[in-house]
Nucleic acid binder design. Structure first.
Lengths: 240, 240
DNA sequence: TGTATAATTTGAACATGTTCAATACACCCA
DNA sequence: TGGGTGTATTGAACATGTTCAAATTATACA
């Protein structure tokens, strides 16, 4: 809204100032404990002004998450300039860099899941309003997959599967009270090791028919984004 | 609180009257649109009285979900008296009966996912406060598995895996706008067909080592309930 | 420069979930 | 029957997210 190039530089500045102080307050006091009035006055703005730049309190957190995503894309791209990495390391870079970014902000993360059960809500992680985010996130994973030699059906499934896996990992991360969330790190490594082994096995002829059925099932269910065009995510309309 | 046998019969009655009228209002007007004041007066009670029986608005929905769970257990038990059903049919009964119960109430379902990202919240689907619910739900799936011949590691994983799958299906169900959510029904059938085929293949020697790693990983991550004793769910404390 | 139009800022007002102290009621027992 | 104890009920008061009409400030253009 005000982070687009069309907005005045001043407005962009105000917006980002409100955003950054809000994040500081959130980190200090927690999400619930920080009131919109506090956020506004901490930024030296009025309540109404805060609402001029952000349609809701949750929207502030969503804006934070947009930034996280951009930073994630940057970091993964940076990690992938090293071309000698194998698939596991590339995926590891994708997962771990996300966790690195979010490390101190697990509280902020909780808000992301709040509307996951509400299809109509603009901030639902699975809804229309966040489609762009999912696409971007999947394209990061696609980048990590790179030109790895993989069967076509696996290739079709993998980005969405990795995105779903990554959401699950984030949930685990939120609930992980081990020191510095080392447990989540180990889980990521374990899952990826397993995944890579599975991808090697998946070429076996005994597994071929299952693979086919799986792809068909996911496609029929609309759980895969469309092949090339702007990816549509999660439950697509039934065919007319 | 007041549905325990220790509460006076009158209190239990009042509580269940408030609950049932609240559900009617929720169904008519939606969750957000129904205010606590409306719910109370629709039940002929005062606002304070509603709060005497339910600690929060969400708690009313949670109470509904408790009832759903009890009904689910009943229906699955009833379906399983027919002993000639194979695994797929038994699991199908478990999944479909759940959907049958929830068919008209997808709006109510959304609330269940609202706190999934908040470990401390009593109503988090993944948190401490709902552990009992998860245990019950898993034991329903365990019942459906029955004495099916299965490797031990698979047996250890399956209830939790089915619970997780079922949560995913519920999400799909909420987002499914096909007529009468037929799409979700097809997804269930497809997934179960695939699962049963996979369970047959899993005995192959090529897959054995992967199976072992998977079990170890899930155990290390605390994602499996403990073997027999009162099941602890999702991320358990790290070992001392 | 002066004015019109748009962008931004403001805080009062509102809606609603929740709390709580005060009150009424019911039941038990001497 | 009367009184006492715990149960149940009440609605006013509160906190906070959100809305909005009005006021202010910036920008564009003649």
């Amino acid at each position: 809204m005000f982070n687009t190039p069309t907005a005045s530089p001043k407005a962009q500045l105000t917006r980002s100032h409100i955003l950054s102080t809000a994040l500081r307050v959130f980190r200090e006091r927690g999400l619930e404990a920080s009131t919109m009035r506090e956020l506004a006055s901490a930024a030296g703005a009025s309540l109404g002004s805060a609402y001029y730049y952000f349609p809701s309190k949750e929207a502030i957190i969503q804006a934070y998450y947009d930034d996280v995503q951009a930073e994630h894309a940057r970091r993964v791209a940076a990690a992938l300039v090293e071309t000698r990495l194998d698939l596991k390391d590339r995926l590891g870079a994708a997962f771990h860099s996300k966790l690195d970014i979010l490390q101190g902000d697990r509280k902020l993360l909780s808000a992301l899941f709040r509307y996951s059960g509400e299809p109509q809500h603009p901030l639902s992680v699975l809804g229309h309003g966040t489609r762009k985010n999912r696409q971007q996130s999947m394209s990061v994973f696609l980048t990590a997959i790179g030109d790895q030699r993989l069967p076509d059906d696996i290739r079709a499934i993998l980005p969405a599967a990795l995105w779903a896996l990554h959401m699950g990992i984030l949930l685990y991360f939120i609930y992980d009270d081990s020191p510095e969330q080392q447990r989540t790190r180990r889980l990521v490594d374990g899952v990826l090791t397993l995944l890579v082994r599975l991808l090697a096995l998946v070429r076996l002829s005994v597994l071929k028919p299952i693979r086919g059925s799986l792809l068909a099932l996911l496609q029929d269910s609309g759980l895969l984004p469309e092949p090339d065009s702007p990816q549509v995510l999660l439950i697509q309309e039934s065919q007319p």
